[in-house]
Amino acid sequence: MKETKIIMGMPITVEIRDKNVDAEIFRKVFSYFQHVDEKFSPFKDTSEVTLINEGKIGESERSEEMKEIFHLSEETKKITDGYFDVISPEGKYNPSGLVKGWAIYNAAKTIKEAGLENFFVDAGGDIEARGQYWKVGIRNPFKREENVKILYIKDMGVATSGTYIRGQHIYDSKNNKKTISEILSLTVIGPNIYEADRFATAAFAMGEKGIMFIEKLDGFEGYMIDKNGLGTETSGFEKYAKPIL
């Protein structure tokens, strides 16, 4: 069974290949994503994140989930040399970058706890793949309908951070001298989607040095595509790009 819904402004797809699958687990997973969106979206007037930013919810009044995300945000900021920061330059709290991977990971846990083994959860191109080997294509940032790598992924997370925006003419209006990254996309394979996603986000923000950051991380591999169409892979990446028979 396979189902897609648009939540948090992106397509979320769940596919489960076990024989004992039923519609109930899909309902449960999608309503969980809805719940996460209601709570963490900085674009919703009533979300807890918005209320925190407006000073209407104090530190002691935060929900357990919010406390967990705050804690994870702090930790992630530390281990990424400050590159992953949920506080915007305007001082607003926006944990969206962390919440996505965390929510996919929790959704996968829910499916697993329902006794299901062979499935994936994909939210906007960030994936947790379990049980069997799944064929994951890395999208060509120059040509959306094309893949430039085929990965064979099982019990791991794959996340891509990037932009399809490029060229020297496109610049940051708040800082005219700084052009947007020379890197178009950075795909990270990690032990789970939470880990893959947060390190993909942080490494992408590092620009060309990002792939070296992934290279140094134990248990992670990466593939970076720059504006000239050059792909750079970490030393252990190739093993995921070989067909599993």
Partner: peptide, 13 residues
């Protein structure tokens, strides 16, 4: 370009 025959696609959409 590689095969389009995949289960899932990862990319920044």
């Amino acid at each position: 370009a590689q095969s389009a025959n995949v289960d899932i696609v990862t990319g920044a959409t």
